[in-house]
């Protein structure tokens, strides 16, 4: 299990992370989302032991990850910026990975060859960004890590390859009970793969919740209410807007509760819809505020 407790990181006067805490369990996929500059990559660099925490701790099964080769050997990291030796091809990088990672499996490496179909002799720097990313997955998955830390993992990949790679990772979760931590701006895709999401903002983790609970307890309602109808006071309204006669509400409650409470007002129209992760993100972080509308 990965545990982050009260993690704070400052760069000069800038606080990149402030008392961030969360956990990630084996067999679960945890999504890390947040606006640009929220601290996602800084957090990830702590998870893989690149940064030393200023305060707090980052633990794998109870042991700090920083400067701990035993912990790092179990972590597979796909960074957003890929790094390979200048002239190395996949074959040469494979030998590097094999010598560093005790879990490396030649059999796994060979079986992944058919998925990736890349020239193993060509220098990796001659590959496109997407092909380099594929190479990174190929090498990392061959190391059979217990924990995958993925920073914008499918950025730059074509749709077929994105699906193939998510399929492989989901297979690893089901088969080997691996822990996956993934940051992405593609919320649509995260919805399919995550058990839980951590929403970050300004260096803090503002929400850590199972996706299922989050989606079961936040609903969007589109309704046309009779003239002069007042919303029941017990309803927890996150957002309310009126377009023509249609009121759109974001409510913090279950779909059944929203339906029950609003039906008492005899609405002319009442539609209760589940919220997408993207909508949750926008409403939680106030992206629908007047600020963003002023620009247009």
């Amino acid at each position: 299990m990965i545990e982050v407790k009260g993690l704070t990181k400052r760069f000069d006067n800038f606080t990149a992370l402030e008392a961030a805490s969360f956990t990630a369990e084996p067999g679960r996929v945890c999504g890390i989302v947040g606006p640009n500059g929220a601290g996602k990559t800084t957090l990830i660099k702590h998870l893989v032991g690149v940064y030393r925490p200023d305060e707090g701790s980052v633990l794998l099964d109870g042991a700090p990850i920083f400067e701990n080769p035993a912990a790092k050997a179990r972590i597979g990291y796909i960074p957003d910026d890929r790094f390979f030796f200048t002239k190395a091809g996949i074959g040469e990088m494979m030998r590097q990975y094999r010598s560093f990672y005790p879990g490396f499996s030649q059999e796994k490496f060979d079986s992944l060859r058919q998925v990736f179909n890349l020239d193993e002799k060509q220098p990796l720097r001659k590959f496109s960004k997407g092909m380099q990313k594929q190479a990174a997955f190929w090498l990392t998955m061959a190391c059979r890590p217990d924990i995958y830390v993925l920073d914008e993992p499918v950025d730059g990949l074509d749709p077929v390859m994105r699906r193939a790679i998510w399929g492989l990772i989901m297979g690893e979760v089901a088969e080997r009970n691996v822990t996956v931590l993934v940051s992405s701006h593609n919320l649509r895709e995260l919805e399919d793969v995550c058990d839980k999401v951590c929403i970050m903002d300004k260096g803090r983790i503002v929400i850590e919740h199972s996706l299922e609970d989050l989606q079961a307890n936040t609903v969007k309602v589109q309704t046309v209410l009779p003239q002069g109808a007042e919303l029941p006071a017990e309803l927890k309204v996150l957002s309310r807007s009126l377009m023509g006669r249609v009121t759109t509400l974001i409510l913090r409650c279950s779909a059944a509760e929203a339906k029950n409470r609003l039906s008492t007002l005899n609405p002319i129209l009442l539609d209760v819809l589940p919220l997408t992760l993207e909508e949750i993100f926008i409403y939680e972080l106030g992206g629908e505020s007047d600020e963003s509308k002023k620009v247009v």
Binding site: G27, R28, V29, R163, A164, W166, G167, L168, M170, G171, V173, A174, E175, D192, V193, C194, D195, E212
Partner: peptide, 18 residues
């Protein structure tokens, strides 16, 4: 199987288990 379907549809195995 859950693993097979998860890999096939590229979705979380826990969702299929549910």
């Amino acid at each position: 199987g859950i693993r097979e379907l998860a890999a096939n549809l590229s979705i979380n195995p826990n969702t299929i288990a549910r």
